[in-house]
């Protein structure tokens, strides 16, 4: 093996030249990336929250979803629809699971009507929703919504938690590590974290910042100027039923309504994760069995 060892040694020398070149390139990138990260973090920092439905085992908290619905109903419905959620969904497993009768009563007393259908004479009509209908908002379409809100469109909230995220600003040398941690811990709650930060993020603008007419200062919103007036009020939070045993605060309201909207965005989360663990367990056992079979088969030959 003499010549082999010699050439191995040479290869290492050859390689070291390249390695030094790579290290040099990395050293050149480092200062720039670090500076860049610092610049970004000076902007809006959004903290991660603890959620019952977080991570790879989390499930929705039914009581929290019910409280969250109450906040949604008393506050958000004034401007926002929830058209991809149907009243019947509120009774389904994995959701707030209100009783069927309560759903019927809720649909029948909903402040907004279903439009777009025709009566026997062919005239468009509005009618009360039923359990199978969408949880519509106050506006029939976006044009009407904009006109009523001075040009700002209150978005439908059915997918708001899925449609929002937190931008990561990690520098290149640690980015992969954050990614790995998120993958291993099953982090999917960036939308909820953002929404919570937005709901509790209304503050007086700092000195030197002027806020436009009809705009509000919010630390979580991109650009810090938001057309939505603060929906939750610190001194007059949405009060919960006494039997809920939860003290009503602005933060609690924000947390609960965020959880409710997270469910509205992803109503199959509970089933998904439960089935996921069964599938993972099955795959793990089968992989081990197949590995043992493979090892046994390959033990017949040298390889």
């Amino acid at each position: 093996m003499g010549p082999m060892q010699r050439s191995m040694k040479r290869s290492w020398l050859n390689g070291r030249v390249v390695a030094i070149a790579v290290a040099g390139a990395m050293a050149a990138v480092l200062p720039f990336s670090a500076a860049n990260a610092a610049g970004d973090s000076a902007g809006h920092a959004i903290e991660r929250q603890e959620w019952s439905f977080g991570g790879f085992t989390g499930q929705y908290d039914q009581a929290q979803l019910q409280r969250g619905f109450q906040v949604y109903q008393q506050v958000c419905t004034a401007c926002h629809g929830l058209k991809r959620v149907r009243f019947r969904n509120l009774a389904e497993p994995g959701g707030p699971m209100f009783p069927e009768a309560a759903i019927k009563a809720l649909a029948a007393s909903w402040p907004y009507q279903i439009s777009g259908e025709l009566d026997d004479q062919g005239n468009p009509i509005d009618r009360l929703p039923g359990p199978a209908d969408q949880m519509v908002g106050p506006y029939k379409n976006d044009v009407q919504a904009r006109a009523a809100q001075g040009g700002a469109l209150p978005p439908d909230l059915s997918l708001i938690v899925k449609a929002r995220t937190i931008e990561t600003h990690a520098p290149w040398y640690s980015h992969w590590f954050h990614m790995l941690v998120d993958i291993v811990t099953g982090y999917q709650e960036a939308g909820a974290d953002y929404l919570y930060a937005l709901l509790v993020g209304y503050h007086e603008p700092p000195a030197g910042v002027t806020v436009g007419d009809g705009m509000y200062y919010n630390t979580a919103f991109h650009g810090n100027q938001l057309a939505m007036p603060p929906p939750l009020i610190k001194d007059a939070p949405v009060e919960y039923q006494p039997e809920a045993g939860v003290k009503a605060t602005l933060e609690q309201n924000a947390r609960d309504v965020t959880a409710f909207l997270a469910w509205a965005s992803d109503p199959t989360l509970d089933t998904r994760k439960r089935l996921g663990w069964q599938v993972m367990l099955y795959l793990l056992i089968t992989t081990v069995l197949l590995y043992l079979v493979k090892r046994k088969i390959w033990s017949r030959i040298e390889h």
Binding site: D182, Y187, Q188, R272, G276, L283, L284, T287
Partner: peptide, 27 residues
């Protein structure tokens, strides 16, 4: 020989696949 090894590789890959499909579908 190859089939038994491919089967191990495939199921190991499925573990990775299903981790994303069930726990990180939008990641």
């Amino acid at each position: 020989y190859a089939t038994s090894k491919d089967a191990v590789g495939m199921f190991a890959f499925l573990l990775f696949f299903c981790w994303f499909a069930f726990f990180l579908p939008d990641y």
